[in-house]
């Protein structure tokens, strides 16, 4: 029972983890992108459509990440090159992504992923370590998407804290003029990380439509993009901490199905992740330590001319 809940929490937490990581590196570059929900939806429909047509999992993954990047590019162009307000640009991106995914998805509603793709994303037991009691079954008997997401989280943690490029990125988020003076190409860094962030959000959305559900339904993300933005705050801009944040919320979102015998209305249980998100935000902001504070230039545009 417990093993099953934990295992399912990882599955439910995977789209959150990918989107959280995507938003995390975007915010590290000093850009607050509120378009996560939109990018996830664009990725979800592109992944689904390509997976459906080509009956090929790779096409689904490529489509999801490219379309997520494309959506992020609109945001990047507006906020970096045209220096628009980041909050409004991000909100517009969400509105755009919601509309686009529902438009492209009209003919897919209720359609199911082909077996070829579903089989590709079946859980794969990793020899030996999957035999460790509890942990083995939970962590090492999952589909490759889950493996990819938590390995990526560890990789991004090392990238941000241990490599020169990662430290440059942090410098841009904290103090762009100093980073500029040190010769770091600010706009290039911002563009690259915003695009990668978009790709990850797209992949997160596609996990829902291609693996987890795997049937197309409108608004398949149901607010997960916003929970991901909250999880970035919860994880204090640290990829390692975002792993357990995402899985904790994954657990919350499935708990309803698991305690059905208690006879609590599903609609009331559906509120749970959203209420907990608010509670978590309150507790995260109570902690005023320096380590857990957002990048200093977050949501402020950078103009060299106006330094």
């Amino acid at each position: 029972m417990l093993v099953n809940i934990l295992k399912a929490s990882l599955v439910a937490g995977t789209p959150l983890l990918l989107a959280t990581l995507g938003e995390l590196i975007t915010e590290k570059a000093g850009n607050l992108n509120l378009g996560v929900e939109g990018m996830m939806l664009v990725g979800a429909i592109s992944g689904f459509a390509l997976g459906f047509y080509f009956q090929n999992p790779y096409m689904a993954l490529i489509g999801a990440s490219l379309s997520g990047s494309f959506a992020a590019l609109i945001y990047g162009f507006l906020t970096i090159t045209l220096r628009s307000n980041q909050v409004v640009s991000g909100l517009s991106l969400t509105i755009f992504g919601t509309g686009l995914s529902s438009f492209l998805g009209t003919n897919f509603v209720g359609k199911k992923m082909p077996v070829e793709v579903i089989n590709f994303f079946k859980p794969i037991e990793i020899p030996l370590i999957s035999k460790i009691p509890i942990i083995g079954e939970v962590l090492f008997n999952q589909d490759i998407y889950v493996y990819f997401s938590y390995i990526l989280a560890v990789f991004l943690g090392i990238y941000l804290f241990k490599t020169r490029k990662g430290l440059n990125l942090t410098a841009i988020g904290e103090n762009p003029s100093a980073a500029d003076a040190a010769g770091i190409k600010i706009d290039l860094y911002k563009y690259i990380h915003i695009l990668i962030g978009g790709a990850l959000c797209g992949l997160g959305g596609a996990y829902l439509s291609v693996v987890q559900v795997p049937t197309w339904q409108e608004n398949i993300t149901a607010g997960r993009g916003w929970i991901a933005i909250a999880l970035v705050i919860f994880s204090k801009w640290n990829p390692f901490k975002s792993i357990y944040g995402a899985y904790l919320f994954g657990g919350l979102s499935i708990i309803g199905f698991r305690i059905q015998y208690l006879n609590i209305s599903q609609n009331l249980l559906n509120m749970l992740p959203y209420i907990v998100t608010i509670v978590v935000l309150v507790f995260s902001s109570l902690n005023k330590s320096k380590e857990g504070s957002p990048p200093k230039s977050l949501s402020l545009p950078y103009f060299r001319e106006e330094r």
């Binding site: 509120l34 909050v87 909100l91 149901a222 607010g223 916003w226 933005i229 909250a230 705050i233 609609n267 009331l268 559906n270 509120m271 959203y274 209420i275 998100t277 608010i278 935000l281 309150v282 902001s285 109570l286």
Partner: peptide
């Protein structure tokens, strides 16, 4: 608590909808 209002107002949407 200086919580981010974009997220809280949006979460309130989903809570109202489910209610």
């Amino acid at each position: 608590f200086q919580t981010n209002e974009t997220i809280t107002t949006l979460m309130m949407n989903y809570i109202a909808l489910n209610l």
